[in-house]
Design a protein around this nucleic acid. Structure first.
Lengths: 318, 318
DNA sequence: ACCCATAAAACTCAATATGAGCATAATCGC
DNA sequence: GCGATTATGCTCATATTGAGTTTTATGGGT
């Protein structure tokens, strides 16, 4: 048994969430990854920090454990001498984007999940390939009961036919696309494992959605994005992604980038200011166009005042 | 390396949350636990279900992964032939309490965490042993900076000196008590591992708080309770603990038992009814004293209607 | 110097949601 | 029929949202 450690390292630059990837074998992005040193690493988290340091020359700050993936067949045979690999995923948030070293790059998260970014309205890929692909998947079930269950699941996950969009169901959506054979990983895995294969094949006309990643790394990233979207609502984690002093609009843009939706500016300000989440530093920003903005900082005292301080996304624009 | 699987199996009976435990070596409760069969168990969750079946004769329904614990020194040496153990914790919710088989019993969760139950007001142990113990721990730091940090952490975790109580910080609180040497496990571990030991010893006069468990199982349980408290607010998981038809007061009591607080009855009803979480079945309950109550059932359609349907605890009585 | 684009910041206002009660309705055991 | 017990209905002041409008500063042209 080998224990792998995976890091989803997220930053937000130029109003887009980005994830740190490294080059791996088959021309695909991979998450920074390495086996736990059973003797050397005292804790899993320390092992992760060590790997990330070695692979990306990055020293992590905020780190939280995400999920442990352990299906018997998740790694191609032979990868680790045929031994089973169990991998523990972590989410890390970093402030700045340091120049990437060899083979390391920052990827736009929404290049991997184009259906998750609703800031400019409903993503076109949803009404296109995804709705068509899901409809095909629903139809392809023989039993009427199974068809109904699939329909229901597709509706709830993707907000179809009147159901609302739930930004946090990132993993549900990715897993559904995988089952429906709409992401490349599903086909790649099917080839490797002829046994349990009944993944529908996508017709040539409708290519697959989103940029693929190595192994099950896109699934781990989906877990991370879903968790992060949930977490900003009740813990002040956004500030891990911002400089110590920032404009309120800057804060708003980061929240929007993560949540994948636009917010109502005035209400957002009211929320974070009256909620005691931030406080003005009398200073102004030597900035870009428009009236100069005051610089704010995170107000740590809020932790003693409110039970779950976060940017609890009211102020969602409709 | 050995992969252990731990199950926190929760039910609510007689208005108390209970956890399933099995007898283990040193007269302590333990969570159902067993190593993953690397060849046999296709997924971690299936391995867990197998172990639980074997140890408790219980077939699990709702199961969710909690956290993976992997510190190098968390198991006593020799337990698994000196090999390092990494354990994956799961939370399972079950409806009924079947008669326990040999060595298996249901433990009141609040016997393990007496400071977490605020239904009859502030738990006395908090104002007593815990406040005294924490004050001692704060004072025992040499550096004034460290003292301030400890004070702050104690205040936020336990809602002291004006800070509010946050029901979800169950793990923070347990870990703090561990560091402060107020739970038996801290002393037990200290004996085993003379190296990193600087846990303060509790004076004879002030015994330790809460019933201890084997190994780090109480910490796993703390993780589970915290997660569950969070989850009932935005996912309809309470219904996993109730029969298919129930009275609204029954539902309220289960939520209260988990959250550890009392709710305002009328407002609670308004919330779950108007929120579309439940629907009346015209039937009445052949019940206990008072006016007969209508029986309700969970309304599955709510999943298509609202993004995160749960019992989002407004209606908290003050 | 003046106009304009771009933001920030300050206010309004109607529509809901929440927190806390009071009032009335059915049962059951005497 | 009385009181205990629980269910269910209804009210009401106050806070929180959602969605604007207005006013205030700057910098960059022309």
């Amino acid at each position: 048994m080998v224990i792998g450690l995976n890091a989803v390292i997220v930053a937000v630059t130029e109003e887009r969430p980005r994830v740190l990837t490294v080059d791996r074998a088959p021309a695909h992005d991979a998450l920074p990854f390495g086996p736990l040193d059973v003797e050397g690493d005292r804790t899993l988290e320390l092992g992760l920090r060590r790997w990330v340091r070695e692979q990306t020359a990055l020293e992590l700050g905020y780190v939280e454990q995400l999920y442990t993936f352990g299906d018997r067949d998740r790694e191609p045979r032979g990868r680790w001498g045929g031994r089973r690999v169990l991998s523990v995923g972590y989410l890390a948030l970093v402030r700045e984007v340091p120049a990437a070293v060899g083979g390391v790059r920052w990827r736009d998260v929404y290049a991997l999940f184009p259906w998750e970014d609703w800031r400019r309205g409903r993503p076109p890929v949803l009404g296109g390939k995804i709705e068509r692909g899901l409809a095909r998947w629903v139809r392809s079930a023989a039993e009427p009961g199974v068809r109904r269950a699939r329909r229901e699941r597709a509706d709830i996950s993707f907000g179809l036919r009147g159901a609302p969009w739930d930004g946090e169901r990132v993993l549900d959506r990715y897993e559904l696309l995988y089952e429906a054979g709409l992401v490349e990983e599903a086909h790649r895995d099917r080839e490797r494992r002829p046994g349990g294969a009944e993944t529908p094949s996508a017709p040539e006309a409708d290519p697959l959605v989103g940029r693929p990643m190595s192994l099950d790394h896109r699934r781990i990233l989906a877990t991370a994005l879903g968790r992060l979207r949930g977490k900003i609502r009740y813990r002040p984690v956004v500030f891990e992604l911002l400089p110590p002093a920032f404009r309120l609009l800057q804060l708003q843009r980061v929240v929007e980038a993560l949540a994948g939706v636009e917010l109502h500016k005035q209400n957002f300000r009211r929320l974070v200011e009256r909620g005691g989440l931030v406080e003005g530093t009398g200073k102004l920003d030597p900035e870009t166009g428009g009236r100069p903005a005051e610089l704010f900082r995170f107000r740590r005292e809020v932790l003693r005042e409110r039970p779950s301080p976060g940017v609890g996304l009211p102020g969602l624009r409709t």
